[in-house]
Amino acid sequence: MEKQATINLEQQFQDRVDQDIRIEPKDWMPDKYRQTLIRQISQHAHSEIVGMLPEGNWITRAPSLRRKATLIAKVQDEAGHGLYLYSAAETLGISRAEMIDQLHTGKAKYSSIFNYPTLTWADIGTIGWLVDGAAIMNQVPLCRTSYGPYARAMVRICKEESFHQRQGFEILLTLSRGSEAQKAMCQDAINRWWWPSIMMFGPADDASPHTAQSMKWKIKRFTNDELRQKFVDICADQVKILGMELPDPELKWNAERGHYDFGKINWEEFWQVISGNGPCNKERIAARVKAHEEGAWVREAATAFATKRAQKQSAAVA
């Protein structure tokens, strides 16, 4: 009897999703849907937050005031993106503190890309172009995802992202028209970031067993390989404007497929970085933990101040 009721609820839920009717926080949803979303949204939020670190490293060393102002604005946007997403995840019943804890203890994952170092100024341009570019490719379809708060957060984020990619490309364009050393720096950054960027779409379709369920629930709207192919096609053309090359000797237009063919991805590296052995995993988490711990007194002070003020106000009223 009870089982029958659950089956009916699940059927109704799936019907709504199929009809593109959004699911809202108080609506009934399968437990697996809730858990999958919490994981997906919080991972996404963590990525926005950790993503500030490699770029923050260059704020004090930006080559001009204009570059500095735009980089600060971009990094500040990423903090906002983290907040929108944490809020969306919280509507599913997990607390902010719990999510932060999961990040700091290594229980939660974030995008593997942010475990690579930013070694030169050209890296900041390349991150804007490729990393934000890949993020946009991933995020635009999520504006139509089935969970309302997530979709609304994505709409807001996507609006803000487009300047990120453009500022990055502008940095590279300037370098690509500069001295020989600047050109070399530009190519070097592209060489280091290209492969990790296309790994951002996640494992190949045949190695992602949950894709089918996620697509059915519309919390994923394209497969990893579909998005990756789209991204490669776009970048292969854009890189020509820079007069640079993507570091893939097998990259070649395939007229028959209407797509670029590209070389094999080093999935071993991907799994190594995901599981904590990337070049900066420990540094990133340590920086987060340090900021959190050193900010503890500020949070406590604000709480104490608010309590005191509330007491004063109620005393004045009485």
Partner: peptide, 18 residues
């Protein structure tokens, strides 16, 4: 020339729960 953000130099505490 490469600056800063070189990556992990030494293992830092990350395991323990905050």
């Amino acid at each position: 020339q490469r600056y800063g953000d070189y990556g992990d130099r030494e293992p830092v505490k990350a395991e323990g729960a905050t």
